[in-house]
């Protein structure tokens, strides 16, 4: 898997993301790309937009990043069938760039949420989730002020009908009561896929849990899934 991590002014999770990718890819370090780059290196399998902030998140979270030179290249990469993962601010940027439907609103509580949550894997036949079981619940860390997924009912129905909801906020038992949905996301949606299943946006941080010495490996299957899918490609 040849991966690259994009760094915007304000990104702060790129090192953890790079470590997670390196661990899953058998020690191969991802390339680090700067937001002002207009081109991606040749031969990439995966581009990751990590979490943090971007350009002060002026106007709306991810709105400025979506207009940056590198995002034009990332859009073209996705349109050619490239794999793209956006986490947290990266998810917001993918929505703002039109690579995923919907938008992320201010958390319903108006509070920044910094805590663990659980997510249920809605399908395990995607390049991002093949090392999970369908219905499996895993723990990840939330750290966001604007993670409240919103789309109109027609779009939500279409996402559900076409199986593009990848992850849902759940309790550890795998049920999806409102209490498990701390940011107020529509239908407990935590992760959304593109129609070709090659773009995933997810709000919590699976890269936080990839090392048995540091808070366990709940998030590691996500990275191992990508490494397995993209090795064969």
């Amino acid at each position: 898997m040849r991966a690259a991590v994009v760094v915007f002014p304000g990104t702060n999770r790129e090192r953890d993301m790079a470590l997670a990718l390196k661990r899953a890819a058998g020690g191969r370090k991802p390339a680090m790309l700067w937001h002002g780059d207009a081109e991606l290196p040749a031969g990439l399998d995966l581009v990751v937009l990590p979490g943090g902030f971007s350009y002060g998140d002026y106007l709306r979270c991810g709105a400025m990043a979506a207009q940056s030179p590198i995002m034009r290249a990332v859009k073209a990469f996705a349109e050619r069938g490239g794999h793209v993962l956006g986490v947290c601010n990266g998810f917001q940027t993918l929505c703002e760039a039109g690579l995923l439907p919907g938008a992320l609103l201010r958390n319903a509580s108006l509070r920044f949420l910094s805590m663990d949550c659980h997510m249920r894997v809605e399908r395990a036949d995607t390049p991002f989730t093949s090392r999970f079981q369908r219905g499996q619940v895993f723990r990840a860390t939330m750290a966001h002020g604007d993670g409240n997924y919103f789309a109109d009912d027609g779009t939500l129905d279409r996402l559900e009908d076409t199986g593009l909801v990848a992850l849902r906020y759940a309790n550890p038992q795998g049920e999806t009561p409102p209490e498990a949905n701390r940011n107020g996301s529509a239908r407990n949606i935590a992760g959304v896929l593109s129609p070709n299943l090659r773009v995933l946006g997810v709000m919590p941080h699976p890269e936080n849990q990839v090392d048995p010495m540091i808070d366990g490996t709940d998030g590691l299957p996500l990275f191992e899934s990508m490494a397995a899918s993209l090795k064969a490609a």
Partner: peptide
């Protein structure tokens, strides 16, 4: 209309 506006609510 119909989009939650927690800021307005607050």
């Amino acid at each position: 209309n119909g989009v939650l506006d927690p800021q307005g609510k607050a």
